[in-house]
Every structure is written in structure tokens, then in C-alpha cells.
């Protein structure tokens, strides 16, 4: 029997965030981009007390399994990061664009008011997406919520809507009871 989840609550903010938690690479590193966006509630209002984490492959398509995500030394790419939102509901990671045939960032969302975590994916926009069987199985509007938007700067924007029009497509994994 699996231990149930519970909400992250309102008071994680002095406990879970830490220095450079959202910097998978230093901002000055060549190739560094921002993956950023806003978390919205069902009324379209930004959620000021949400926390996101991402897991990803490097540009070579390989998911790193090295330690050092908490005491970041600026050289190791660990492929994991954490970002609390600001008072405007906005989060931002500094990272590298993952590689591979159909690359995505695995994303988990926590918030006050959200009784258990939500999983989703932020796909990197590109021509390969049309070939992915999972994406192809979705309605176009559901699929659109999973694809990050490329900005002229090279950054990627990925907004999250917990409820309502344009609700983000959340995921449950095979093997979950």
C-alpha cells in the first residue's frame, strides 16, 4: 500500500528552496536558456505559492545520474532543478535544451491548495513532435498544452493551468495503482 500524498501547504518557502536551486547551469554558460512560465488557477489568476521541479536529459540526450544538485559547483550538469514561483506565479529555470529524438522536460508541480503533486511534460518544440505516438494520441488542444513555446531569445516558455480553459494535460504513469 502506497503512502498517500498531501499538499505542500503554504509554508514550504523557507524550507525547500535553496541557493541556485533553479540554475541547472550558470546563466553565463554557453547554450544556457531559460525554461520559464506562469502557474495559473482555474480563474486565470497566477498562483503565488507553487513549486516546480524538472528532470531532463542533457543536449546529448543522456539523462545524467550525478550528484551535486544542492551544492551546485557550476560545472556539473545534474539534470534536475527546483523553482518556487514568485508572487506573480512566475517560475524560471536556467538550463540546457535536452537532446534526443523527442526531447522533453519531465515536470512535477506542487502548490498550496493542490492536495497531491501533478506530473506533466514540457516538450521542446521541433519537427520531431509529430512522430511521437503519445502526442499523436491527444486532441490538438491537449497536445498544445504540453509543448513549450520558443521565444526569439532562445528561451522556452511553458505556462501551467491547473484548471479551466486550456488546462494543462497532466499525466499518470503506467504501473500506478
Amino acid at each position: 500500500m502506497t503512502t498517500p500524498g498531501q499538499t505542500i501547504g503554504p509554508f514550504y518557502g523557507y524550507a525547500l528552496p535553496y541557493r541556485r536551486d533553479h540554475e541547472l547551469v550558470p546563466p553565463a554558460r554557453p547554450g544556457a536558456i531559460r525554461l520559464h512560465g506562469t502557474v495559473f488557477d482555474g480563474a486565470g489568476v497566477p498562483v503565488p505559492d507553487a513549486l516546480l521541479e524538472i528532470r531532463q536529459a542533457g543536449p546529448d540526450g543522456v539523462v545524467p545520474t550525478v550528484d551535486g544538485s544542492i551544492r551546485r559547483d557550476g560545472t556539473r550538469f545534474t539534470g534536475w532543478g527546483r523553482a518556487g514561483v514568485d508572487p506573480g506565479g512566475h517560475y524560471s529555470f536556467t538550463t540546457l535544451v535536452p537532446g534526443g529524438p523527442v526531447p522533453f522536460f519531465a515536470v512535477v508541480v506542487f502548490a498550496r491548495g493542490l492536495l497531491d503533486r501533478l506530473f506533466t511534460r514540457a516538450y521542446v518544440p521541433g519537427p520531431g513532435l509529430g512522430d511521437d505516438p503519445f502526442l499523436a494520441s491527444l486532441d490538438p488542444d491537449e497536445r498544445a498544452t504540453l509543448v513549450a513555446v520558443a521565444e526569439p531569445s532562445g528561451d522556452l516558455r511553458f505556462d501551467i493551468r491547473l484548471q479551466g480553459p486550456g488546462q494543462t494535460t497532466f499525466l499518470t504513469f503506467e504501473g500506478t495503482p
Binding site: D41, G42, G113, F134, L162, Q167, T168, L171, E174
Partner: peptide
């Protein structure tokens, strides 16, 4: 206002 109203999609990780 913070719970999804559409069921999650089941997927192979």
C-alpha cells in the same frame, strides 16, 4: 480553483 477537472492522461514513463 486548483484541482484539474480533466482526468490525467495515462502514459508509459
Amino acid at each position: 480553483l486548483r484541482h484539474p477537472t480533466r482526468a490525467p492522461r495515462r502514459v508509459d514513463p
